[in-house]
Amino acid sequence: MKEELTEIYQTLLKELGPQNWWPADSKPEIVLGAILTQNTSWKNVEKALSQLKKHSSFDPYQVAKIPLEDLEELIRPAGFYKNKAKSILLVMDWFNRYHWDDRAILTLYQERLRKELLSLRGVGEETADVLLLYVFEQAIFVSDSYARRLFGTLKGTNYKTYGQLAKEIQLPKTMTVTDAQEFHGLIDEWGKLPTEEREKMVKLIQTDLLKDN
């Protein structure tokens, strides 16, 4: 499977080009985007982020001071704004306690970090893994809906839950953090393609996999 993952990654990279994902200029912006993108489109997230940027410049200490009702209005375009606002305030406060020192947080929690992230309100498996990948720069695989669709098509399996695919995927040690980030971005880009183009890409991947077997 690890060799197949490398081949799938290389094919997507060749066909779609570098994605330079996650689209953010700072780690606080990544965290905000990771929470806001839950159950909505990135277009809606961008609207909410734009309003947050005007209000706080993504300064996490300023975000943490925004009154709950005001924050709800700022992020309303992203949907589920009441729950997301509460989550943002709690998660910002958690990171602020550690002064956004991701190395210190990693040292403190080590292998318990994912469990700690999952204990935070509004942080599910996908959000936790996104934070591990982009904020803490750990080379892991994000088994989001696009990944489940791609690997489900390739393997003829219906991955109904995040955990189903996550249990099967372990990135090869040759993949760097940058590779893992690109892989996530490429899979999401594939998922946004029209159906015909997605199917064409799957056939290309299958052809490349057969060449190596």
Rank of each mutant, 00 (worst) to 15 (best):
E15W: 08
F136R: 06
D59V: 04
F136G: 09
M175C: 14
L89Q: 10
K54T: 13
Y162I: 05
T195E: 14
W190L: 08
E182G: 04
L90V: 10
F95E: 05
N39Q: 09
E168Y: 05
E196Y: 02
F95W: 04
N96A: 02
A180I: 08
M92L: 03
L32N: 01
L133I: 02
E72N: 08
Q19C: 12
V45E: 01
D129W: 00
G33V: 05
V135I: 08
E196I: 06
V177Y: 03
Y146H: 10
D212R: 15
E125S: 06
L165W: 02
R114W: 00
S119F: 03
E3Q: 15
M201H: 10
E168T: 11
H99P: 11
L108G: 06
S26H: 09
I105S: 05
Y134L: 04
K192I: 01
L117P: 12
V45N: 01
L5D: 14
T161W: 02
Y134W: 08
L32W: 03
S119G: 09
L71A: 01
Q19V: 12
D212P: 12
S50A: 14
L117G: 04
G124Y: 00
Q181G: 11
D179W: 11
S143Y: 03
E197T: 11
F95I: 07
D25L: 12
Y98F: 13
I88P: 00
L5M: 15
G79F: 03
G17K: 12
W94M: 01
Q110N: 14
L154C: 12
Y146E: 04
K53M: 08
L12D: 03
W94V: 01
F80P: 10
L204K: 15
D212G: 15
T174V: 15
D101V: 08
Y109T: 09
G191I: 06
K155I: 06
I66M: 05
E197H: 07
A147I: 05
K115D: 05
K47D: 07
K160W: 11
Y134A: 02
L71C: 11
E182L: 09
W42D: 01
N158E: 14
A180P: 09
K173C: 12
K211C: 10
P18N: 11
V63Q: 07
E73Y: 13
E182C: 07
D102A: 12
K27Q: 09
V45F: 00
K211P: 07
L132R: 07
S87M: 04
P172N: 11
Y162W: 10
I140G: 09
L13G: 10
A139V: 05
L36G: 02
R121T: 06
E4N: 15
L12I: 05
L150R: 09
P18V: 13
V91A: 03
